[in-house]
Simulated assay, not measured.
Amino acid sequence: MSGRRERRRDVATAIFADEIGLQFGIYGEFRLWSAYQPIFAPEGGVLKAVAVEGLIEPRRIAEPVTPSIFFDGIPAADRLFVETMCRMLHLGNYRNIGVEGLTLFFNYNPLINDHLGRALAEIRLMTRRLGDFELEPGLLVCEITEQAADDHVLASLVREMRRDGIRIAIDDFGTGHSTEARINLLEPDIVKIDGGWFAELCRHAAAERFFRPLVGMLHERGAKVLVEGIEHAQHLRVALEGGVDLLQGFHLARPAPAGVIFKDEPLSVDALLDANNKIVPLHQRR
């Protein structure tokens, strides 16, 4: 117990705020900043921003570092500490988005918290602090990443979060361990289709015909379908014709650091489907 208490104190003392109130974390020589990528829902002829996914932008001496390089370099003993810090940063910076009512997606790696008691303690700590962040549990979606995990631990963790009002998403569906078996186990509220898998699907002439039954099957299971990695007009076309509920990707909007002005005007589907269209800017810096 004392070890867990010490870890929690360390996370709190590793988070700071700059002169305008933006929170950042310090881990070794790195500074960690929250960024948020919008998630859109189709509504008539437009896409409306309804959620954001919290992502980390690591910097070393003010120079950006690729997140995969940063996370791959974290020793196993520090991974729980860093994941907890990242989650707290996303919660703490949520108010700096400047748009109320957006759902916040955050990632959860089941391999890091593979001890049931420790995993439940971390989630309970988070939910107890939501009031400090001016967040309601119903605004949160926990994305279970595709790593292998103990089914008992994972199912218990999901029950705990659902009891608190947090929704559950399965990330990277179509790859690794994000399979139909995991859907049967967790009964997610949202299934995120892996962007790389979806991009390969879109290379086929009959992509829409193959994709629509998958979306229908997931809807029958009671899950909404989110396609990530929308990088081209063709990706958007296949996703929309497949009947998906939510969309995310660089063709719609890139992640933007906390504190950047969020422009929540709906995006025109017709403009995005124009083959000559480039990335649509959603944000502008203050």
Rank of each mutant, 00 (worst) to 15 (best):
D151H: 04
H152N: 08
V153E: 03
L157R: 10
L157Y: 06
R159C: 05
R159P: 02
M161D: 06
R162P: 11
G165E: 06
I168V: 15
I168G: 03
A169W: 09
I170P: 00
D171I: 03
D172A: 11
G174V: 11
T175C: 11
G176F: 08
S178I: 06
R182G: 04
R182N: 10
R182C: 02
N184Q: 13
L185D: 01
L186S: 01
L186I: 02
L186H: 01
P188H: 02
P188W: 09
V191P: 00
V191M: 04
I193G: 07
G196H: 08
W197E: 09
A199I: 04
A199V: 00
E200R: 15
L201D: 12
L201W: 10
R203M: 13
R203F: 03
A205C: 08
A205T: 14
A205Y: 12
A205G: 03
A207G: 05
V215W: 12
G216M: 08
L218N: 08
L218D: 03
H219N: 10
G222H: 07
G222R: 04
A223G: 06
A223V: 00
E228C: 04
E228K: 09
G229P: 12
A233C: 07
R237A: 08
A239T: 03
A239P: 10
E241L: 14
G242H: 07
L246F: 15
L246D: 02
L247V: 08
F250N: 12
L252H: 11
A253L: 03
A253C: 05
R254L: 15
R254K: 14
A256R: 12
A256E: 15
A258W: 09
G259C: 03
G259S: 09
V260N: 11
F262W: 15
F262V: 04
K263H: 14
E265K: 14
D274Q: 10
A275S: 08
A275Y: 06
A275K: 06
N277L: 01
N277D: 05
K278T: 14
I279C: 05
